[in-house]
Structures are given as structure tokens and as C-alpha cells.
Amino acid sequence: MRLHPLTSLAAAGSTAVITTAAASLPLSLAVMGAAVALSARSGTARRLLPAAAAVLLPLGLSLLVMHGLFFPEGRTVLAQWGMARVTAEGLAFALERAAQLGAVVLALLVFSFSVSVPDLVAVLSSRGLHGRFAFVLASTLTLLPAITSRVERIRQAQESRGLVVRRGLLHRAAAFRLQAVPLVLSLIEDAGTRTAALEARGFSNPGPRTSYRAVPDPRGQRVLRAALLAAAAAAVAARLLLTQAGS
């Protein structure tokens, strides 16, 4: 069954909220596993994993440094260098936070890699979202593929003139150095022309607009969305209650 974009958005959003509210390591790890499995099944894992790594590695490392080394409540000291103490509690806390964050990021990435952007834009426009905003959103989601294909075109032009790009990440990274400046310049130039075309096609019209693309929204999915949102709200409420009860 094809998911309505708002359903997948609700699913990703509520998963993120519930995982954060639950703050449970097993749940976070389960969500992460499920997200990776889902993306592998839909064939987006090749793109999703590098993106997730780019977001999560720096964040995870900073969590580790923050809590692993400087965790005031830490009692079980594993190692110590002056001010910095590695404590078991700190490491556990860092791991828990990192897993939570990982679950949220992966859930949202699975959504953004799997959603049909035209469907999403059509749905948002038909729900009264301003066309310009919907366009910006769509452009953001299509930006990475657009940049990738632009870099590829520039690289092909350069290869046609004798730039040898061998297989492997290092070679590609070295070659990208030559493509970065042309890429930025061409994107800027492109934006200029494209603006004129979009304006002339009434893109900035303040009035109402319609959508050519019809996105079916079956009743079952509407119910599912409501249930997901209710579950997210319940999770937040439960968390607040527990916190209050605990304090």
C-alpha cells in the first residue's frame, strides 16, 4: 500500500516523539534497527546510511565527550585525567542519549528519503500551505539529488577533458575539490534564470492555487494518523506525569 505523505510524516514524527519521551535504550535501539531495516527494504539504505552517519557521528562524539568525561553524577570511575573522569554512569547516559538521537534522526531520514516529494508538495499546497513555502520545502528535499546530478555533470565535463577519477572515496573527494567552485557558481546562476521562469509562471501569486496531482487519502490512513498523533501526545503526557511524580 502506498502511504499518504502525511501518514508517513505522522509515523516518523510520532516515532521521534515517543522515543524521546520514553528515553529507553532498548526502545531507541529497536527503533534504530527498524528504521535501518525499513530503508534497506525500500532500497534507500545506500543513501540513508551516509547521511545518518554525517549527522550522528559528530553529535554522538560530542555527547560522548560531554557526558562520558564530565558527568557530575558519575560514581564508578573508569579512568581519570585531571578534571576529566570517565565514569560508567556517564558512558551509559551518553549511550542512551546517542541512541535516542539516533532513533529520531533515522526515523526522520527514512521519511525524507522515502516520501514522494511531489505528493508531499501537492498535499501541503492543497491544505493551504503557501506555494512558496511548499516549493522551498520541496527544493530542500530535492536539493541533494539536484546537487549530486549537477556535480556529476561537471565531473563528466571534466573527465571528458582528461580528469581521471578513479574508484574509491579518496579519489572522489580529491576530484570534488575541482568541482566545488563550479558547482556553487552554476547553482547561483541557475537560480537566477529559474526565478524569472517561476515568477512568469505565476509562482508568487498570492491567491488560491490548485494541484494537478491527486493524492488519495484513504480513511484507514486518516484514522491511523489520528492514532499516531494521539499516541505521541499520550507519550508526552505520560512522561510529564512521571517526571512530576518523581520530583
Partner: peptide
Amino acid sequence: AVLSTVRAT
């Protein structure tokens, strides 16, 4: 240059 770039078909 005319293409909106966000339309699928």
C-alpha cells in the same frame, strides 16, 4: 530553464 524542477511528470 523553464522547468520548475519540483514536478515529477
